[in-house]
Every structure is written in C-alpha cells, then in structure tokens.
Design a protein around this nucleic acid. Structure first.
Length: 504
RNA sequence: GUCCCUAUCGUCUAGCCAGGUCUAGGACACCGGGUUUUCAUCCCGGCAACUGGGGUUCGAAUCCCCAUAGGGACGCCA
C-alpha cells in the first residue's frame, strides 16, 4: 500500500503572497484533496526578517482568502511541527551533527580559489544582488559545514519527475555544498530536506526553478536513509514579455488582485489553468471539479504566460497604489477579468452583497443605506461588471448626482432632435406620477412615447443623461425607481438648467 | 561560460507518450451580425497557429536529427 499523500507549500515570509506561489499552493492543495491527503503549510523563514509576524500573517491571510485550507501548519498545528523553520534550528543542527558523525559533512573555510566565476559575479551585479551581504559572505573567514555529496565513487543522479519524466545530472556537476553556516543557521537546501523528511512529505510539487537543485537534495535524502518523495516540477509563469514574473516588474502580490475586485475563486480557477488543463473543454470549473480532474501528468513543461494588457512598464520602485492603478488599467480584456465576470454572475444575491460591500464602502458612504435597496442596485450591475471594483464604480449614479455630463451624450440625445422638449415633458409627467414602481413607470413612459410617436430610445436616453451624466445606465425604469423620485426630479432639473448653455 | 528543458492561433490550451479519425478543437481578446430603451448579458458568424530545415514512414502537429528562438539552474537567496 502506498504511503499516505502528504504535500506541502513552503513560502518564505517576504511581505506578500506571490501569485506564482499561490499557483504552486493550488496544485499541492488539489493533489492533497484529490487523494484524501494532508496539505501542510510550512513557513520558510530561515532568514529572519524584521516584521516577520506581519509577513507571516500576510501569507496566512492570502491563503485563507484564496480558500486554500491547510491541514497542518501555523494556527492549526499538527503532529510534525513546529511549522516555522526558524523554530527548527536545533533539529537542523542535530541532523548536521549526524552527517558529520557519519562522515558525510565536514567543516571548511571558503577556498578563495574556488570563489565565484567571472560570469556569475557579473550576473549578480547586473541583477543588483551583488550587495554587501554577498561580498561579506565571500570573505567570511569562518568555516561552514559542507555536505559531502559523493560518499564514494562520484555517480550521476537520475530522478523520475512526475512532470519532467527522467531527469539526469552528471556526477561531475554535483559539488559539495554548504548546509550549515558558521553561525549555525541552515541553508535552504538543507532545511527543506530535513523538514520534508521529518514531515513525511510524499510528493514535492514546486516550481521548476528548484529542479536543478533536486539532485543535490536527493543525495541528502539518501545520506539520511530517508525514502525519496515523488518530485513534480511546475512550469514557470511568465509575463507578457516572456519574462518570469517578478516583484520588480509585475503585480505579483495577491492582495493587489483582491483590491482590484478579483474574486478568489476566479483567481484560483485562472491560476490552476496556467500549465495544467483538465484535458477537455472545461474552463470555468468548481473546486470539486478541479479536484476530481487534477492530475500531475497533465501538467505541461513549457512556461505559461500570465497575460495582462500592459499599457506601460511598472514605474521603477513603484509603490502599492501605483501597482494597483497599473493593474486596473491592465485588467480589462484579459481572460482573468472575463473569468471573474463569470464568477460574479453566478454569485447568489446575499453573497454578492457581502463580497461587494467592502468595495462599496470604499467608494461611498453606506451609513444610511437600506440593505434591500443595496441588493437591488447590486442586482442591476451584477451582469454588467467584471470586477467588484468596477461593480462599485458602475453604481456611482445611485449614490451621487452626476458631477459632469458627457458632451457627446448631451449633443446626441438632447441637442439633436427633440431631446430637451421630451425631457421637459417627462419631468412634468414624472412629477405627477405617484406609483413609483418599475411596471408603472414603464407603462407611463411607453404611453408618452406612443403618444408622441417617438422611439423609446429618444425618451430613455435624455433621462439617462440626466440621471447618470452618460448615455449608459441599467434599464431606465429600474434606475428611476432606485434613484428615487425626488432625486430623479432634482437631476432632471439640473440637466434642464444647462439647456442653451454653451457646451465647452 | 557549463548543464538541462521547452516550442500549436496575439494569449490560455486540446491533440503528441500508443503516427492516419486534424481541411488542427475549445476559451479569452479582436472584428462583424442578431436580440435589447443605452450598456452589459445572451445568440450567431468571422479572423487567427503546428518556429524553420532535414530525415523515418504509404502517411508526421505527433517519432528522430540539426538550426533558431525562449526558459530554468549553476550562492554561506529562498
């Protein structure tokens, strides 16, 4: 019988949750759920950061928001904790000692002659990573603990990756590497392996950027007499320029997508389809459908592009708000936005209200708002909005009188033809109208149009301009009802006051 | 520089492993049309790809080789 499925997602607390990381988490989560396995969340914080608690919280919040529940990890605990690497240092030292005792690890000072090659230094400098830390480390006189990668005759490592199939690494390319620094802190490659063994991880599903390190890690599994997990390396995610998405040049923090009004289930669905497909034509899928359809051997190897409609490059050193604006501009017309719209359309009324409320609050004063009225205006925009942000924005006319009028709309619907005359007549009609319901208003306006022999558009459009300032609004009767009679009359008067005024 | 990988519409992808059913399917985007009081929804239609070159084969998107292009890795980063 096969070992129980235990998978993990091990982000480091960098201050944000990366969308690429979320996709990795999704694949692990889907795999765990499909096999009735355990999904472990582990925090890779070997590098102690300043606001660590906050940074960890960002990750937990992001995971919860995305609906990726973990079975073991921070907040929930588990039998294989602690789940913070910073709390496992003693364990790493213990394992290091074992390796030392068995002759598989040795202390050595960095050999100046074995220092980094030219091309590497140049590359680091180019990437802006040739910082003082690095220079310091290179000249560190203290010895570090090295893992002896070849116990005997050097041999190549052959691994069977669930996605990549056979992956080989020749012996001469496997060099001894540092597992413990002079100060006793573990390196990533070491801590990860120790944890994966201790936590009985059965399948390691992670980004392709870890593939080349895998052979080195495998030697460590062997040296520790641990069973080898199944490896599965996922293709990278690229931006529209074919570059690996990165914090520097792309909006990668999930909070930005959340702030833009993307629904978590839409983001998860979209991300799941980057590098994986169910093999049929399904695209908008429920989580249960994805869990049922998921399979490691349907993951492809070539990088997937996370397409946004880039208007311009992100400004150098841009802050959160600039990134938010950038994303707002880059989202329309993308598949993510479309998919989000599909999810918005499916939302039950009360869910729509709870999801949209934070956005409405950010845009308007909701203190006196009637929840029934809110639900009604939301229903009007539900199929007209592809993000919650746009939804809130599209509802502006229900909260505020037009601050300005669209010139084109005024010219087309008021100044050409009988627009002004109709609007004046309708004002009187509405003023006398007492039954302020959609059906009654529809009846009255239709009767007016018929009597004047006018097309309904010539009646509705001037009204729209008065109510919203533009030629666009939800159906006019419902809009009138929900704007309220006194407010509607006020806005009509405001527009009528501009009759004859020169338009700029 | 060294090692490894990848390559289907603008994009996400199906098809490839087990060659014929592929005049290459779906979706987004875009364009056009219909429904509609505007917008949106909905419906219909269109545009659009096997990177190039060699093989193997009766037959290649599918297998092999080369070229080209892209990517990943090669740290006391994670």
């Amino acid at each position: 019988m096969a070992a129980p499925v235990r998978v993990r997602f091990a982000p480091s607390p960098t201050g944000y949750l990366h969308v690429g990381g979320v996709r990795t988490a999704i694949f692990n989560w889907l795999f765990a759920r499909q096999h009735g396995g355990v999904f472990v969340l582990r925090i890779d914080d070997t590098d102690i950061k300043r606001h660590q608690d906050e940074a960890v919280q960002v990750i937990l919040d992001g995971m919860k928001w995305a609906g990726l529940s973990w079975d073991e990890g921070p907040e929930v605990g588990g039998a294989y904790g602690p789940y913070f690497q910073s709390q496992r240092f003693e364990r790493y030292k213990e394992v290091a000692k074992q390796l030392e005792a068995s002759g598989r690890a040795y202390w050595m000072k960095k050999d100046a002659a074995k220092d980094l090659p030219e091309w590497k230094i140049e590359k680091l400098k180019k990437a802006g990573k040739w910082d003082e830390d690095r220079a310091q480390a290179a000249s560190d006189p203290e010895p570090a603990l090295y893992f002896k990668i070849h116990p005997g005759e050097p041999q190549e490592v052959v691994l069977q990756d669930a996605v990549w199939k056979e992956y080989r690494r020749p012996a001469e390319m496997l060099d001894d590497y540092v597992i413990l620094r002079a100060d006793g802190s573990p390196t990533y490659n070491f801590a990860t392996v120790v944890d994966d063994i201790d936590m009985k991880i059965s399948h390691i599903i992670r980004g392709e950027d870890h593939l080349a390190n895998t052979p080195k890690q495998i030697r460590l599994f062997e040296a520790l007499n641990a069973p080898l997990p199944v490896f599965a390396h996922l293709p990278m995610i690229h931006n529209d320029k074919g570059q690996k998405i990165s914090k520097r040049r792309d909006p990668v923090a999930v909070t930005i997508y959340r702030k833009c009004g993307i629904l978590p289930e839409a983001l998860v669905n979209f991300l799941a389809l980057l590098g994986w497909s169910p093999g049929d034509d399904r695209e908008v899928m429920t989580q249960d459908e994805m869990i049922a359809a998921f399979s490691l051997d349907r993951i492809k190897l070539s990088p997937a592009q996370f397409t946004l409609k880039r208007q311009a490059d992100l400004p150098e050193g841009s802050d959160y708000n600039e990134r938010l604006d950038w994303l707002h501009a880059a989202l329309p017309g993308t598949k993510l936005e479309w998919m989000n719209g599909e999810y918005i359309k499916k939302l039950a009324p009360k869910d729509l209200l709870s999801r949209a409320e934070p956005f409405l609050k950010r845009h308007y004063d909701l203190s006196g708002a009637d929840p029934v009225w809110l639900s009604k205006i939301l229903a009007l925009e539900q199929e007209r909005s592809r993000t919650l942000y746009a939804l809130a924005e599209n509802l502006r006319l229900f909260f505020e009188a037009p601050a300005a009028y669209d010139d084109k709309a005024v010219k087309k619907w008021l100044e050409k033809g009988d627009g002004w005359a109709h609007l004046e007549a309708i004002r009187e009609l509405l003023d006398k109208h007492t039954d302020w319901t959609g059906a009654a208003l529809e009846h009255a306006l239709n009767a007016y149009a018929e009597q004047k022999g006018a097309k309904f558009a010539n009646i509705a459009q001037p009204l729209r301009v008065a109510l919203s300032g533009t030629a666009v609004s939800p159906p006019i009767h419902e809009t009138l009802v929900l704007v309220s009679k006194p407010e509607a009359l006020k806005r009509i008067d405001a527009l009528l006051a501009r009759k004859g005024a020169p338009t700029p």
